Amino acid sequence: MKAVVEFPVAINRHCRSLDVAVLKWAWAAGLFEDPAELERCRLQKVNWFAGYLFPEEMPKRMELIMKFFLCLFLLDDLLDIRMEPSMIEFLKNLKAGKSFHADARLQSLGSALLLLHQAIQQENAFSGAKGEWDIVWFDYLEALQWEIQIKLDGTPPALKEYRLYRPFASGAYLALQFLRKKTAGLACEAELLEYTTVRYICLSNDLASYEKELAIGDVHNEVMILREDMGDEALFRIQQEINSLRKRILLLAGQVWSQSYGCRDWIRSLLLLAGGSGAWTADTSRYKGYINGSSGSH
């Protein structure tokens, strides 16, 4: 049997110190429910997610990215708990650049997200990518609204619709946007390669979180949707596709690499992002237990 070729994996050397700083920042900003939730995030290495995805970032930018993704994880958890129409309005307000909610913690989280979003906007403005960031941010918020509405309706999502919204709701496209620096022009932004990478990340995450979400009845998982028709064969099919996607990414990356020397830094960062996503999933205990009584896939 041929050995499976894995993606490269590294972790940002500033991750450990920034983890402490970002947790302190989040506590001071009122983003945690209580000390137990802060400790849960620390033990689950939630901030290390960004460290795995962006191992080559410098401390200042790494701190911004780490804060942003911590807020996304906290929002994801709250959306699982608070399945109510007010959350749709909350997300609509975020899209409009406002944070309104009766719950003080949600209000604080929304305010923190908007401030971080503005900081990222300014950073992208220097590279001429502000419009691209805004589009991806809006797509993310709209996809979250779709997820909430599906849960409120009580109807499992159709496979086609799930595959359409899942890549945006996962935040994977937001992560990709951080890789688009001045050195990565349009020639490097191979749409098929990015789409394949996002598909790989989402499907791998669904497989990793499947047992946990099955236990709590969260139907937003492709393995669970496929099991309705395929039974246990769905697990095998998903693993097959993940292996196929991995090979496809490496093939496409090699093609882009050979065509443009200027794209090589971007390709290396993209492969590290794909490898880092899987490495963090294996390292965290986030998918091995309950989070506030609900699932916390992201």
Rank of each mutant, 00 (worst) to 15 (best):
K60A: 14
W137M: 05
S127C: 12
L53Y: 09
Q145V: 01
Q44W: 13
L106K: 00
W146K: 13
I135H: 08
A112T: 07
Q107M: 14
A29I: 02
V22F: 00
Q44F: 14
L94T: 11
L23H: 04
P35S: 07
H117C: 09
L53A: 06
M87A: 06
L116I: 15
E132T: 10
L53M: 11
T155G: 03
D103V: 03
Q44P: 06
S108A: 13
I135R: 08
R82H: 13
Q44Y: 02
P157V: 08
N93L: 07
E39Q: 10
V46Q: 01
L53Q: 01
P156A: 07
L79H: 02
V20Q: 08
L144R: 03
M58D: 15
D80W: 04
K24F: 07
D103I: 04
E56K: 12
I148S: 00
I148G: 00
C41T: 11
L109Y: 08
M62P: 04
C41F: 15
P156Y: 02
D134C: 07
L94C: 04
P157T: 01
G97E: 05
L94R: 08
G30E: 03
L38A: 14
G51A: 05
L72E: 03
V22H: 06
S86T: 13
N47L: 12
E132S: 12
P156L: 05
E84P: 05
E89H: 12
H117Q: 11
A119Y: 09
A50P: 06
L115H: 10
V20E: 09
A129S: 08
D80H: 06
D76V: 12
S86C: 01
G128V: 01
V136G: 01
L144N: 05
D80C: 06
W48M: 13
L70N: 02
A129Q: 09
F73G: 04
P156T: 13
D19S: 15
Q121N: 06
R42H: 12
D134N: 05
E63K: 13
E56G: 00
A143G: 01
R82E: 03
F68W: 11
Q44I: 09
D19M: 14
L75F: 05
E147K: 10
I81C: 08
S111T: 13
K98I: 15
P85H: 09
K95N: 01
D76I: 14
D153H: 06
A50C: 10
D76F: 06
W48N: 10
L43C: 06
M87N: 01
E132N: 12
L144E: 02
L74T: 03
W48Q: 15
K151Q: 12
Q122A: 07
A21C: 08
L23G: 01
P156W: 03
